[in-house]
Each structure stands twice: as C-alpha cells, then as structure tokens.
C-alpha cells in the first residue's frame, strides 16, 4: 500500500514512460530540437495562408502500434467573430 508520506513514483511506471519517449526518438530519428524547428517552419508556412496564434500551436509524435504519427494541433483565429466583437 502506498503511504501518504512516501508517495514515491513506482519504478515500473517510470521505466515505461521513459521508454515511450526514447523509443519514439529511436524509431523516428527526430530529436526534441528538430521537432521544435519543424514546429517553427510549420507555423511560418501556415501563417502565410491563415491567421494563427503561434503560442497555441502544439506538436508532438505519438506511437500507434509500431507506427509513429506526427500530431499537430493548430487552432485558427476566428477573424469574423473578432471583427464583430470590436464593433
């Protein structure tokens, strides 16, 4: 039983989480720094077409079985609503 005063993380969970991250890097050859650079490029490209808030953009790699997916969440700024709010 877990004691209230010694809430140490179980080491198996630790191992699993660390492995999840390391395996994604091993499988894709994508370092966190490269992922940041990719995010900046993505923001620049998308901004040429639609208005977005760079701060709100989230990007990451997720494992789906043995396939890795690049997941990007890019909220678009809602121009019309903004315009209406100002009037």
């Amino acid at each position: 039983m877990m004691n209230f005063f010694s809430r140490k993380r179980r080491s198996a969970e630790n191992a699993k989480e660390r492995l999840q991250l390391v395996l994604i890097h091993d499988r894709t050859n994508l370092t966190p720094a490269e992922l940041e650079a990719l995010k900046d490029d993505l923001i620049a490209t998308i901004s040429r077409h639609v208005s977005i808030d760079p701060e709100a953009v989230q990007i990451g790699v997720e494992a789906d079985g043995r396939t890795q997916r690049l997941i990007a969440d890019i909220p678009l700024k809602n121009i019309t609503r903004r315009a209406r709010m100002r009037t």
Binding site: R10, S11, A12, E13, A15, K16, L19, Q20, L23
Partner: peptide, 13 residues
C-alpha cells in the same frame, strides 16, 4: 509491487 515492467507494459511498448 510495480517495480518491474509487466508483460502488458512491454507489449504496449
């Protein structure tokens, strides 16, 4: 005791 990866964990990974 959650001090070793289970078979399920390893299969997940």
């Amino acid at each position: 005791k959650h001090d070793m990866l289970s078979a399920e964990d390893v299969l997940d990974l």
